[in-house]
Write a protein that binds this DNA or RNA. Structure first.
Length: 503
RNA sequence: GCUCCGGUGGUGUAGUCCGGUCAAGCAUUGUGGCCUUUCAAGUCGCAGAUCUCGGGUUCAAAUCCCGACCGGAGCACCA
């Protein structure tokens, strides 16, 4: 089974559900997911996008995917695509896709209007001055004397100012206890190549200005964002107030991140730059591409996100919960195969050559079966071998029982000898998986662990397990999710490598 | 430092707005049985929270009020 082919079940059937939306009217809800195309999508994006979509669906409304691209210095074309791909994989289907930059002239017009309305002004103070005055809660000369505002506004847009020489500031309240209201920047000059607009535009709105304008104009009824924006709500509504624009309902929720698996580029980029981590889809990362490569299916992520609700409490949810959702989905779809870690040779004296037919799934016969050629030589896992004593009787799963007659250790290499011991399945007997010596496929399994322990990179974050699997595994394409019996679920990654999903 | 937001079993949450039906539901984890030629899944059961703490209001508080403590966020010409 390839994870991307998992059937998408309606969430209502799963038992997990989001609480009702405040003030929502059936058929009229419009939500929006506004990522900045400045990086690869991760689990945090997934949470926001899924919640946005769930509510749009719950009320038979619309979901807008709006790339919040108002900073040409940070955005790249490849990220627009990466985010689209990520959402596509997640099964999040926006009804409308647009960019904030599509509306750049409109937004600029509203900016000009705000200055004309005396709701904003052009400030030419240095950043240091601004910072100091803001800290003191004092207005600068640019604000106190509005006579030049309109002239400056023209100069700003006709290119008379250089970058950093002038910005448009909101006329808030320099003494407000909420510092977001102390005349924040609304527009600034950025010289740079924008992925969509090139160098055509140089007066760019900040997020603080673009977001409310876009939400209002796009018809968004319920705007959701993570809670670090809470203090900016006052600004958001003040802007819409002064411009006399319709106000959406604002809802915030906590960010999603796992313990030891940071989402921040600040913590990941250095590891990629210095080669510690190869790429953004490394299974230790919380990017969507990593989850996919690791064998997680979109529907598990969706259920998990919904189960978290839209709480404001800042907590790191247990990764095991995500695993549990995933396990329940992939369990019935995954073939059961044998893989032995740290192989130890087992010689079964006088064992006959056999063609063993193995079921690919214990209950679902639709998954078929396979035939393995067995002789008297096998491999069993080092862990199992280590626990054996002479005269122990064990069952080779789906084969027969053997009794250990000799345990040798030459040059640190363990080997076992046994004799047949019937075929009756006994409750008490350990049942272990095996691989026929003439039917092996070398396989290494990558087991991702926490990337960070505290603030420190975890040097043991990727365990590499070596072993042998059945040759049947060689026929799988990358993307196949299987369960190695008594080992865990894995996703075939190609090049004799599998990635451990979870147990 | 200032401001804002949180604080329910090991963990994540429901409930808090509109006090009683909540000595608190669900999930996960743990644990025991059944099932099973897997240490998975399924299934049945159990364990685990006096709802951060201290006051107050009330016949009645997880739910309202006050205070404290702890945790997080914001204080950018980033989003």
């Amino acid at each position: 089974m390839a994870p991307e082919e998992t059937a998408k079940k309606p969430v209502e059937e799963t038992g997990v559900r989001l609480p009702p939306l405040e003030g929502a009217v059936m058929g009229q809800v419009v939500t929006r997911f506004p990522p900045e195309p400045n990086g690869y999508p991760h689990i945090g994006h997934a949470k926001a996008a899924i919640i946005d979509e769930e509510y749009a669906r719950m009320y038979q409304g619309k979901l807008i995917l709006r790339f919040d691209d108002t900073n040409p210095l940070k955005e790249k074309l490849e990220y627009y695509d990466a985010i689209k791909e990520g959402l596509d994989w997640l099964g999040v289907k926006p009804d409308i896709v647009k960019n904030t930059s599509d509306d750049i002239s409109l937004i600029q017009q509203y900016g000009r209007k705000l200055v004309e309305l005396d709701g904003a002004y052009v400030c030419t103070c240095s950043q240091e001055t601004m910072h100091d005055l803001r800290a003191k809660g004092v207005a600068c000369e640019c604000r106190r004397d509005p006579s030049e505002a309109l002239t400056r506004l023209e100069k700003l847009f006709n290119g008379s100012y250089e970058q950093n020489q002038a910005i448009i500031r909101f006329k808030g309240d320099m003494a407000d206890l909420n510092t977001a209201m102390r005349d924040p920047a609304l527009f600034r000059i950025i010289e740079g190549q924008h992925p969509k607009l090139g160098s055509k535009i140089r007066v760019w709105p900040t997020y603080d200005f673009a977001a409310p304008i876009e939400d209002s104009l796009d018809g968004v009824t319920h705007a959701m964002r993570t809670k670090e924006y809470e203090l900016r709500n006052a600004l958001y509504f003040a802007i819409l107030d002064r411009l006399d624009l319709r106000k959406p309902t604002m809802i915030e929720f906590s960010r999603l991140e796992f313990e030891g698996v940071p989402v921040s580029k600040r913590k990941i980029r250095p590891l990629i730059d210095d080669g510690t981590i190869k790429d953004w889809d490394d299974p230790r990362l919380p990017t969507l591409s990593a989850f996919r490569r690791r064998g997680f299916v979109p529907e598990a992520i969706r259920k998990f996100v919904i189960s978290l609700g839209i709480t404001l409490a800042e907590t790191k949810p247990p990764f095991e919960a995500l695993e549990a959702y995933n396990r329940k989905i992939i369990d019935p779809l995954s073939m059961r195969l044998f893989f032995v870690k740290d192989p130890v040779e087992l010689y079964v004296q006088e064992a006959a050559d056999l063609d063993v037919v193995l079921k690919n799934h214990p209950t679902d016969t639709a998954l078929g079966s396979r035939t393995v050629k067995a002789s008297d030589r096998f491999y069993v896992s080092g862990d199992d071998a280590a626990g054996l004593k002479i005269n122990d009787e064990i069952r080779l799963i789906e084969l027969y029982n053997v009794k250990i007659t000799r345990i040798e250790c030459q040059e640190g290499k363990l080997s076992l000898t046994a004799t047949p011991a019937g075929s009756e399945i006994k409750q008490s007997m350990p049942k272990i998986q095996w691989v026929s010596k003439q039917d092996i496929f070398d396989l290494r399994v990558l087991i991702p662990k926490q990337l960070y322990v505290g603030e420190q990179y975890n040097t043991n974050s990727l365990e590499v397990v070596k072993g042998v699997a059945e040759s049947f595994v060689s026929g799988f394409k990358p993307g196949q999710v299987v369960q190695f019996v008594r080992f865990g679920f894995c996703r075939i990654d190609g090049n004799n490598t599998a990635i451990f999903t979870h147990r």
